[in-house]
Design a binder for these strands. Structure first.
Length: 271
DNA sequence: CTTTACGCCTGACGGC
DNA sequence: TGCCGTCAGGCGTAAA
């Protein structure tokens, strides 16, 4: 599933292909993804020049002269740059054609991705305005987490995945960060100490950095869709490792459910 | 306000 | 082999 590293890798991959190019055509092959695809995209997008490709949390912001296209990849969505007559596959939902034969293609089997057109400041859009800190922001520290966790009884993993607190961390990297920090994912957030939360913030940033580095190597040539974005190159220590021996202590990795999501941890390394 | 449950959608997987 | 039920999963939204 695309989390921050995958989305940022995608952003870096498509940015040089799109910026300063003009939209020439729009093809929509799905009436509805997460929400109805704006029916009039093909009306106002052609002719507009892309000015920037930004990211906020897991949202991509394709900025144009007269507005901004917010794009979320959901669980199974990914973007590619295609050139020339590449026939559309079953799950190819949207094509944005740009000048010089550059085509941005959204593929999504499960149709959980979303496309929203917005004018005005996209960061003030209701979908983005309530987001918390970026994990790589300097203010994302143990002190910040301590403030957000104060008096809260919910599991620290649920807090870490709450985009109102910190944005872009999904199930995979929340699990990995907590393992590295040696914190049990079900620990009530308000029970954690500053040193623990400082460690958690550091480890979250660290795991995202490593995943980003791995994604970057996987997707260097973004126009050549060699593989799906991601975490295939990144080594997961707990996520999806139920029953396998922990790398540190050999105790089998356990699975529980928190906030409706599968949660993986080592009961001895994460007391 | 906080926390939980639901729904969207389809591929993968287990059971028969 | 084939059919069917179940589940995963981000996240906005409704409900408790």
């Amino acid at each position: 599933m695309p989390e921050l590293p995958e989305v940022e890798t995608t952003r870096r991959g498509i940015e040089p292909w799109l910026v300063n190019r003009q939209v020439t055509a729009v093809t929509v092959r799905a009436d509805k993804l997460r929400w109805p695809v704006p029916a009039d995209l093909a009306q106002y997008l052609p002719g507009q020049r892309c000015t920037a490709v930004d990211r906020r949390g897991k949202y991509l912001l394709l900025r144009f002269e007269n507005g901004c296209l917010l794009l979320h990849l959901g669980m199974s969505g990914f973007l590619r740059i295609v050139q020339g007559p590449v026939p559309a596959g079953r799950h190819d939902r949207v094509d944005l054609d740009f000048s010089e034969g550059v085509r941005l293609r959204l593929t999504d089997s499960r149709k959980f991705s979303s496309l929203i057109w917005t004018t005005g400041d996209p960061l003030q859009h209701p979908l983005l305005s309530d987001h918390g800190l970026e994990p790589f922001a300097g203010e994302f520290t143990g002190t910040y987490l301590l403030e957000k966790a104060r008096g809260r009884t919910l599991a620290i993993k649920v807090l870490l995945m709450d985009h109102h607190v910190v944005t872009g961390i999904g199930n995979i990297y929340a699990n990995e960060a907590l393992f590295r920090a040696g914190i049990h994912p079900a620990t009530p957030a308000g029970n954690l100490t500053l040193p623990q939360l400082t460690c958690l913030a550091d480890q979250a940033r660290q795991v995202l950095t490593e995943a980003l580095a791995a994604g970057g190597t996987t997707l260097q040539d973004f126009s050549n869709p060699a593989g799906q974005p991601g975490h295939f190159a990144f080594h997961l220590k707990v996520y999806g490792q139920s029953g396998k021996p922990c790398e540190q202590c050999s105790h089998p990795i356990e699975t529980i459910r928190l906030g409706g999501r599968s949660t993986f941890f080592c009961p001895t390394c994460q007391p």
